[in-house]
Amino acid sequence: MKDTSLYFYNELSETYHLIFKNWPETVQWQGAFFDKFIRSLYAEGHEGPIDLLDASCGIGTQALGLAQHDFTVTATDISPNSVERAKREADKFGVHVHFGVADFRTLDKDVPGQFDVVLSADNAVPHLLDDQELSVACRNFYEKLRDKGLLIISMRDYDEILQNRQRSTLPRVMDEGKRIVFQVWDWAEAGNHYITNQFIMQELDGSWKTEVNSTSYRALLRTELSAILEEAGFTDIRWHMPSESGFYQPILTARKL
């Protein structure tokens, strides 16, 4: 399947916040969540700010929230339009973040230095559609971490989704019925790949406007990602399920020792 993620996020950059009921509140919540989550696993005995690379920052949903806590944040994304939007949002939030454009597959060349934590949240890694791309990205995550550094990845629960090849998400109705958001998934006939069609419908000035953007994903099983991370050199690979963590997606953590 064609890599469509760059076009998808460039086109969605100005309306991405509409996927959330209240995006600024989501930024605050995710910042507080990941601050607590990271410190529970990494920062015991750590003095001073934590250097963190958000390697799929989008418009800043995680990066901006973490910058409000004691983190020195570098935030990159494959989409230049999303990074520009994130810069504007950082000014509104009054936080300082080092921004850049970078691809998982060339992260070793695109981003200088190493970090205490590398984060990729909200199902970005499954945009890598084959094992070769995924292996390159995981090696780059490893290279970007300092010794004893922590990798954090969140993604959809594809182990559950593949049991019945889910076809859509339930519509979420917001703004007193004036905004509806949902996805329709078109599965490939063979393999665990699908196209997400993201619908954002809004009533504006008495008429409805519909925006549809599409991108490709791999329905990545937890065992598949864990095996590739182990090959890249990571240890202590763990999965934290929503019932345990309180986050809305499974979270993987792994360490560079």
Rank of each mutant, 00 (worst) to 15 (best):
T72H: 13
T223H: 15
C57Q: 01
E244L: 04
E11C: 08
F8E: 02
L53F: 05
D122Q: 11
Q62W: 03
V73P: 04
E231F: 05
G191P: 01
L107P: 00
S168A: 13
E84Y: 04
R105L: 06
R85Q: 13
R238H: 14
D110I: 10
P171Y: 06
I59V: 15
V125Q: 03
E160Y: 12
T26P: 00
D108C: 04
G31W: 03
E176D: 14
E244S: 08
G45F: 00
I195L: 09
L229W: 06
G31H: 05
M174D: 09
F199I: 05
C57N: 01
Q62A: 12
G58V: 06
E47L: 10
D236R: 13
G177P: 12
G60Q: 02
I237R: 07
D205N: 14
K178F: 06
D91G: 10
F33L: 10
E11W: 04
E143W: 08
F34R: 00
L52P: 01
Q202E: 14
P112C: 03
K36D: 08
H240N: 08
G65P: 02
D130K: 09
A32I: 06
A227D: 11
E44Y: 07
W239D: 05
A188E: 15
D159V: 01
K21G: 06
A137E: 05
L129D: 00
W187H: 11
D147N: 13
R255A: 04
L52C: 05
I153A: 04
S207P: 01
T235Q: 13
S154P: 01
L128K: 07
Q198F: 12
K36H: 11
F37E: 05
L257R: 14
R165N: 11
Y7R: 15
F115V: 02
L220C: 01
S245P: 02
D35W: 01
L128Y: 03
V118N: 10
A188F: 14
L229Q: 05
S226I: 01
T210G: 02
E25C: 01
T15D: 10
P250C: 06
